[in-house]
Design a protein around this nucleic acid. Sequence first.
DNA 1: ATAGGGTTAG
Length: 638
Amino acid sequence: MKQLSLLSSCKSLRSLQQLQAHATKSSLDADPLFAGKLLLHCAVHISDAHDYAERLLLHSPNPNAFMYNAVIRGFSDSDSPRRSISTFSLMLRNLSSQIDSFTLAFSLKSAANLRCLRTGAQLHCQALLRGLETHIFVGTTLVSMYGECGRVEFARDVFDEIPEPNTVTWNALLTAFFRRGDVGGAERVFAAMPAKSPTSYNLMLGGYAKLGEFAIAGKVFDEMPLKDEVSWSTMILGLAQHGWYEEAFACFLRLRRVGTRPNEVSLTGVLSACAQAGALEFAKMVHCFVEKVGLIWITPVNNALMDTYSKCGSVDMARLVFERMPGKRSIVSWTTLIAGLAMQGHGEEALALFLEMEGSGVEPDATAFVALLYACTHAGLVEEGSEMFDKMSNLYRLDPEIEHYGCMVDLYGRAGQLARAYEFVIQMPIPPNDVIWRTLLGACSFHENVHLAEKARDKLSEIDPNNSGDRVLLSNIYAVAGKWRDAAAVRRSMAELKLRKSPGWSRIEVDKMVYMFVAGVRGDDATREAYEKLGEVMSRIRVEGGYVPEVVSVLHDVEEEEKEGAVAAHSEKLAVAFGMARSGGARRVRVVKNLRVCRDCHNVMKLISKVYELEIVLRDRSRFHCFKNGNCSCKDYW
DNA sequence: ATAGGGTTAG
């Protein structure tokens, strides 16, 4: 059986088809054993070959159970698990008597991935009919399926009937409790487990991390007897996702210290922390590491690197990673770079890259269109964006989703075409949500349109009445229009409802350390240093740059940051001042802010860049601003 | 074969 051993060396569909041609010549293809193995290899071990496996099955004159099972398995973890179920139905019609534990385990996994309780319950019936519901693999997958469908009680019922549940079965039950958000239940299961593998600890770790309970997660992590790759990834990712960036960096360094080799998941995790915190220097170090351990071949790692460089303001590095990536570029790779260019306001380049992607045979998906429309919005490419929106449904048959409609409202709104934006909202085929109206409200604020703002407000008060950000926007619009009474009334209503704004922060990286500043929060040495420097900077730009603080501009804070009286400063000013104080002769400082930059800070940055001949790269919540010689790359358009 | 961690847009 030389051909059988050759099979496992086939890595691509083409080499498999060659082998198949040889087999046909020697009539080997008539051998049901060979046909089955070939199909299994095709469905499970070769990527994107599910379709071919399914065709082989459908064209086979006498498919056996092994072949059905191979296709069911192949689709179970694919992006179309539904086809696994349709293959099951086919088998039920043609070869019902041969349905076995393999058939049911993989079909159930598909039902679990689909979160389809109906299908899962029907498969459960089939298992009962055949006496397979307590079979260890089938039973375990049943527990998992009910858990995925949110039915802990059913999962428990199945579990209780399994005579000898193993660790995997227990873990499936544990997962079911966490999926339901029942931490107490999960803790009871964990305590009752007769044996615990690292996976059981990892599940507890992940469950606590998801809730942001890092005090407990850290305790589990420190006390678990054996940490594997998943333990480290879970910890690093969890920290990154909850905004504990410095802790994520520390965990990554600790991982390196103990000599464990970080895998691609922990690397993407720490890169995500770098991206969010804007920690360029740390990201560069991680990049070196990626090259060193040979993970540069992994596409998602490259995508994470590109995203990180873009969000740290180095879109050139992102472009370089894209050009040099040795692995295959996925749709995500293209989308990431398009979004990166968009953030810097390089709309034309993003548009060109999108066309290049189309030319290279990669079909854009809904997300790629979001990134593209976002690029058009931030570069003021109104007509181009409008064309692309039409292209999406006309050429690619993609139904625009709420996000795409949001992009279009933003596109027209930011460009000042408020009537067109409103018209667009009114005739949307799906009901506009709070984000759509909020986008319109934001545009009204920027272009000072009280009349339309009130329409948006009326809609928002129906959908999301207690949003503090909306009220801040509204009060600012009134203030700008000179309607001080209305502005004050909105502020008062906020106070009465005890609506708090989310605090604004800015971060800056100096000597590989990340410092965070929050407006109105004082006390630590770094903040004292920042205020001291800021005082000097402000008086110099007043004298040499002609800076005049406007009353309106202070109120015109686009988002949530509260004005903190005359001496308090927005966090981005503090971060920049700190950077100037610490990095002596540096020509450039980079700051990351969690909210949008306000108009006053924007003015100040422009003046600093001119008076001090300093380049300031400021990332706010929606884009990058590069201040140089008194101008900003956003052309005052944000 | 069955359980655990991941990249893009807002």
